[in-house]
């Protein structure tokens, strides 16, 4: 059962899951460098996604029984949860479409990118998910201060990711001849695919940051309690979703196939 008995074991669970995710990411990187085995990369990504969806996004809560009273806060939160997951399902089709485009246009090739930078932004986003989870756990036990601190760290890390991609990664890539309009015909459709995928993801990161900012500000006003904090849960799940997308985009852009 995923339910944690008390706060410290809930926090501990967050740590364990984070370690799994970090190790798996390391393995992915190693697989890519050492064997270039696409199926293994896919397996690793799917496992990571499963961990995030179950432990960080607690998808199992969709099945929680809410009792009969349709007007209670609990029941409404349950409905909201369905709504949010339906939204995520819909949104994931955008990313699936981008992925299909990537496979169609690039096949088993990939753009030539700064690997260390890629690993760094991936790590930053993963760590941000870790802190998000701590924040959510904190508010679940009514610890508003810890929630605000952890959310603030999440926010900073998210901002770091966004700036890292848009201002460092994009610049470097452009500098090395990867341009959106294929100014360099030798790179084929690489540039367009790369900027489109990272750009769409970055847009979601941006909306996630705005969401986090709103929730943080509301927590400052003290409107979330241990029993009533749907806003926090929604922001957290959305934030993990953004991470989830990157779990697939990172290997798709940085690891799979050969760089040309």
């Amino acid at each position: 059962m995923a339910h944690s008995e008390n706060k410290s074991s809930a926090l501990m669970q967050g740590v364990v899951i984070f370690v799994y995710l970090a190790v798996l990411t390391g393995i992915e990187y190693f697989i890519a460098v050492a064997f270039d085995a696409v199926p293994l990369l896919i397996v690793a990504a799917v496992i990571k996604a499963g961990l995030v969806m179950y432990y960080y996004m607690h998808i199992y809560r969709l099945g929680e029984d809410d009792g009969e009273d349709q007007h209670s806060y609990r029941y409404k939160t349950g409905t909201n949860r369905f709504g949010l997951w339906l939204f995520l399902l819909s949104d994931s089709f955008v990313f699936a479409g981008l992925m299909a485009m990537r496979v169609n246009l690039l096949g088993l090739t990939r753009p030539h990118l700064n690997q260390l930078l890629g690993l760094a932004v991936t790590a930053i986003l993963l760590i941000s998910s870790f802190f998000m989870n701590r924040g959510e756990t904190a508010i679940k036990y009514g610890d508003r201060k810890a929630f605000m601190t952890n959310t603030f760290i999440t926010f900073l890390l998210g901002l770091g990711f966004l700036l890292g991609v848009v201002f460092v990664e994009w610049r470097q890539a452009a500098h090395e001849g990867l341009t959106a309009d294929f100014g360099n015909p030798a790179s084929g459709p690489m540039g367009a695919v790369f900027y489109m995928m990272t750009g769409m993801h970055a847009f979601h990161v941006l909306t996630g940051l705005i969401f986090l900012g709103i929730v943080w500000n509301n927590a400052r006003k003290g409107i979330y309690t241990a029993d009533q904090h749907w806003g926090v849960e929604a922001a957290a799940v959305y934030w993990h979703f953004v991470d989830l997308v990157w779990i697939f985009f990172y290997p798709a852009l940085y690891l799979i196939g050969t760089a040309v």
Partner: peptide, 15 residues
Amino acid sequence: GMGFFDPAKGGNPVL
């Protein structure tokens, strides 16, 4: 000018 569907730029209109 991103040439997703422009064969001259490596894109694919059938996509």
